[in-house]
Design a protein around this nucleic acid. Structure first.
Length: 934
RNA sequence: GCCCGGGUGGUGGAACUGGUAGACACGCAGGACUUAAAAUCCUGUGGAUAGUAAUAUCUGUACGGGUUCGAUUCCCGUCCUGGGUACCA
């Protein structure tokens, strides 16, 4: 007869996975009388190493919620798909010539196999693949909508100010009255023009104007350009001005490329955060990323500049009398112009050095103070003082105006700079915490001094007054500044969505909607061309009606910025999603994924959703109502130690005696005691064949370190092996049991036996010692009901609060108690089967069937609990003295505080502790504690 | 550097709103069953000191301070560590 053995588990899991598929238990309809619930996972990038044990962490959690919500009577949409465009497949293509499509398809099918084995209740008919032309057709279509829109600040909107509108309304305004009445978000100040002027422009000139308004636009942006690699690099890939790969020189330069005017939505992205149920740290990160600051832009006239001036942004105009120098970014456009001949050589040298460092390097390296004097002076508009203009790389070209007025007495970086270069410091605030040289320095404290008419005012009053003067005297303007920049949207890559754009006489034009999708052409190699064009420049006979296509492709985040809509209606080839499906599913009720996407994907998705809402395509202002972040499962890498310059490896505990370099060893070669399988290691790679190993106690012991789970560290653990030896139910429960969902932790399988034993004990409750089903129809006892209802209450509460680890513990306690009294009553076990089914769907389906149910367990109802069974009438109070627990006493829960006090004071044990002295104070917290203060 | 997390026994972790720290599990030790092993079951298990023992006392949530009758929990500072930092996804 069947025990819960390896073979039986395989049979059960295979049986139910097949049955779910054939019966279509988890196929979801877009029409239902039930309330809707949309549970979404962040879809994975299908990497070549396959699914690792980190992926399922969030997926299991969302599956538990999905199954729970189904049992609670919801129509649940729970889909899965693949974010399939990306760099690794392209790198592989460059190295091997293998088309990324082939690699990607292979990886996707591996992922599907692996996911299926874990028993997720996905509606597999709704799968999406962002690299499929049937999908990216709609990514391109959305791009076209963004291209054909502008942000009208005057447009009435129910959320924040203004909204996106079709570009046609802008053109109509231009034709009627030029841009005079237009209040739009643009990438720079557009000079005013009349309708006559607009009419006199040619097509190219008109488009140049429109580009400054479009939400998707071509613009000049600073990038790290590596000529040798023919590509733009991320800050991560640049170290000390050279590319990390190859060490080629990297130049920071402006390039014309596609951008997204996310800055238009800064305010709404900020306001929207208050309305969504997201973890506070994530909202905080987005707030900081958007980085709203309110201040002024001031013009400092150049001393010999023919009326020209340098514009700075400051949040602290009140400190204007403390300005002793100005600092501009090395990339600032006025640098060549204002530098005096005496300073030119010095400045040029500095600019060359500084401007090619990545922004990250420049910001993190604050200890290295550097700068150069331009020789130029500006005039402080308030007191007409001469202010020297310096260049320094701590000022970034991309933020504000790329120029700051330095107030060394009130800003630590300015102070460090002033001290280093011996520039004057004028104290402008006086107060106990206004001294920058002291540890308790607070820039927002004290009263003004050395500041003419501001003297004596608190800083905040002074700021308001100065800001007003700035406005009135035309020195500058009040300005709300955002740290967030427009998002660069073009990539010099092959494996991404092509733009639905071609160029006619240098004017970017959209292809006709009927010609979508613009599919990726075949090319002979995936590198940039020899002339530095992106890989698509290699395509032959690839054009739109004779005109050349845009050669860059969209970034990785394009396809993921709208995919939750596609799951609602994945096979629609007429629309990105039908109106009916959008009206029914609306938005995502629960989104589970990693916090590493806080300022990327999660921000871009909110942005696209808002544009789509403005244009009337969707109903929701926010895409994801509730967000939960799961932690990362890290890998434990195993290390062998090569003695430098030799072919010898030394065992872990002996490595101190040598100069060694660690080498990552495949974790599969190492056993639980860190002993290396020497023969596997020696035949692993060709360069290890002739090696010699220095052993300890006849064994080679490896070292360990925690890393990201990744192919390059050889520490990837696949869930398949766990499923193979313990079954999917054990894997699911174990991953939940590991700890709180949000926590990151290294993977180990130390405790997995405990979970497996739990499931086997659960199985044994239903069977006699011969393995035959043995169920009693007797009525439950009071004690049994208490155990049952306590468990159901705790588990339901835990699922709704995403505390899956504690509910697994609760199940364990419950089964321990039922096992010890050998409870096999149907009335107790049947509700438990349902309650456990979200966690362990296979074993529970099997038991459900054995209990005589023909209908699927997913149609059952989650059991309700009854508080009456849980009520206690008394409580054992810990009695503490000065906060330290000394004894315990039992009182009725409804006993008044005064009575408890009297009884405690009269108790002999307490009298012994207090030595007869009357306590100063007695604190009685009902249901918690009694504390005597002596 | 800046922004956001985390740090509790040998290990993963639990602790509701500031109220008995260490639930639940792994590991370990001892025992039962067995010819034996596996499996299963039972008992013990933060540390230190005292005691034959039941037990008692002290100590203990990264480190140093603070608030409080009472702090793993709140506040200030330090150290270590994970994520992000705009072209990895």
């Amino acid at each position: 007869m069947a025990d819960y053995s390896k073979e039986e588990i395989k049979r059960i899991e295979h049986k139910w996975q097949q049955k779910w598929k054939v019966r279509g238990d988890y196929a979801v309809s877009n029409t239902s009388d039930k309330p809707k619930y949309y549970v979404l996972d962040m879809f994975p990038y299908p990497s070549g190493v396959g699914l690792h044990v980190g992926h399922p962490l969030g997926y299991i959690a969302s599956d538990i919620v999905s199954r729970y919500k189904r049992l609670k009577g919801f129509n649940v949409l729970h889909p899965m798909g693949f974010d399939a465009f990306g760099l690794p497949a392209e790198q592989y293509a460059i190295q091997t010539g293998q088309h990324p499509r082939v690699t990607t398809e292979k990886n996707i099918s591996t992922y599907i196999d692996q996911l299926s084995k874990i028993g997720f209740s996905y509606d597999w008919s709704r799968i999406v693949d962002t690299s499929d032309p049937g999908y990216y057709k709609w990514t391109q279509w959305i791009f076209m909508q963004l291209f054909d829109s502008w942000y009208n600040n005057n447009s009435p909107s129910d959320f924040g100010k203004g909204k996106a509108e079709p570009i046609a309304t802008l053109i109509a305004s231009f034709e009627k009255s030029g841009n005079v009445g237009v209040n739009a978000v643009t990438d720079e100040t557009v000079p005013a023009f009349s309708s006559q002027k607009w009419a006199s422009l040619n097509d190219k000139e008109k488009e140049d104007v429109l580009q400054k308004y479009r939400i998707a636009y071509l613009g000049e942006t600073m990038v790290n350009w590596c000529a040798a690699l023919g590509t733009v690099l991320s800050n991560d890939e640049v170290k000390d001005g050279v590319s990390e790969r190859g060490g080629y020189p990297v130049e920071r330069r402006k390039m014309l490329q596609w951008n997204m005017r996310i800055s238009a939505y800064a305010e709404r992205l900020l306001l929207g955060l208050d309305a969504i149920d997201w973890p506070e740290p994530i909202r905080e990160m987005q707030r900081n990323w958007i980085g709203k600051s309110i201040g002024c832009e001031l013009d400092f006239p150049l001393e010999d500049g023919d009326g020209k001036s340098i514009r700075v942004f400051t949040t602290r105009v009140d400190t204007i009398y403390g300005v002793t120098f100005m600092v501009i970014a090395p990339e600032h456009e006025l640098v060549p112009e204002i530098t005096t001949p005496e300073q030119r050589a010095h400045v040029t040298e500095y600019v060359d050095m500084a401007k090619n460092r990545s922004e990250r390097d420049r910001m993190s390296d604050v200890k290295r103070i550097s700068g150069a004097f331009t020789g130029a002076y500006v005039i402080n508009p308030f007191n007409k003082e001469r202010i020297p203009v310096w260049i320094a790389d701590y000022v970034l070209a991309g933020y504000g105006t790329g120029a700051v007025m330095a107030v060394p007495s009130n800003d630590t970086r300015d102070y460090a700079f002033a001290t280093y270069f011996n520039l004057p410091v004028i104290q402008i605030l006086e107060g106990p915490t206004s001294d920058i040289t002291k540890d308790n320095f607070d820039p927002k404290s004290g009263r003004m001094i050395n500041s003419a008419s501001l003297n004596g005012m608190p800083w905040h009053d002074a700021m308001e007054m100065t800001a007003q003067q700035v406005d009135e005297q035309g020195i500058g303007v009040k300005k709300v500044n955002y740290r967030m920049r427009d998002a660069i949207f073009g990539r010099q890559r092959y494996w991404g969505e092509p733009f639905p754009v071609y160029f006619k006489d240098g004017i970017p034009k959209l292809v006709d909607e009927h010609d979508l999708p613009v599919t990726l052409p075949k090319i002979d190699a995936y590198r940039p061309t020899d002339t530095g064009e992106p890989p698509l420049g290699r395509a032959k006979d690839w054009n739109y009606k004779g005109y050349s296509y845009e050669l860059t492709t969209m970034p990785g985040w394009a396809g993921s910025s709208w995919y939750w809509f596609r799951y609602m209606d994945p096979d629609n080839n007429k629309e990105f999603c039908s109106r009916a499906a959008i009206s029914y599913w609306k938005d995502v009720d629960l989104y589970i994924g990693g916090s590493e996407h806080a300022t990327g994907h999660l921000l871009y998705s909110r942005f696209w959703c808002k544009v789509m809402k403005d244009l009337g395509f969707v109903d929701s202002e926010e895409p994801f109502k509730k967000l939960i972040n799961q932690g990362h499962i890290q890998g434990i890498s195993k290390l062998a130690y090569r003695i430098n310059g030799t072919q010898k490896f030394v065992s872990y505990n002996l490595r101190k005696n040598y100069e060694v370099t660690p080498l990552h060893v495949d974790v599969n070669f190492v056993d639980a005691n860190d002993v290396l399988d020497v023969s596997k290691f020696k035949t692993w790679r060709d360069d290890l064949r002739g090696i010699e190993l220095i052993l300890e106690d006849g064994k080679y012991i490896c070292g360990s370190e925690v890393d990201k789970m990744s192919k390059r560290y050889y520490n990837v653990v696949n869930p398949d092996d766990i499923v193979d030896s313990y079954g999917a139910d054990t894997l699911r429960m174990y991953e939940m049991f590991l700890g709180p969902l949000e926590l990151s932790k290294p993977w180990n399988t130390h405790g997995i036996d405990g979970v497996f034993k739990f499931l086997r004990r659960f199985w044994h409750l239903f069977h006699d010692s011969h393995g035959s089903l043995s169920i009693s129809e007797d009525a439950p006892t009071k004690g049994e009901l208490k155990v049952l209802h306590k468990t159901i209450k705790k588990v339901a509460h835990d699922i709704e609060h995403f505390s899956f680890n504690t509910s697994v513990s609760e199940f364990m306690i419950c089964i321990n108690e039922l096992s010890s009294i050998k409870c096999n009553k149907r009335s107790v076990l049947e509700p438990l089967v349902i309650a456990l089914s979200p966690y362990a769907p296979h074993i529970t389906e099997e038991l459900w069937e054995k209990l005589g149910h023909e209908e699927s367990l997913s149609n059952a109802c989650f059991p309700k609990y009854n508080e009456d069974f849980l009520k206690e009438d008394s409580f054992e109070y810990p009695i503490s003295i000065n906060g330290k627990v000394r004894t315990k006493m039992n009182f009725a829960l409804d006993m008044p505080k005064e009575d408890i006090e009297k009884l405690v004071l009269a108790s002999e044990v307490v009298l012994k502790w207090t030595e007869g002295k009357a306590p100063k104070k007695i604190i009685v917290v009902p249901g918690r504690i009694v504390n005597l203060v002596l």
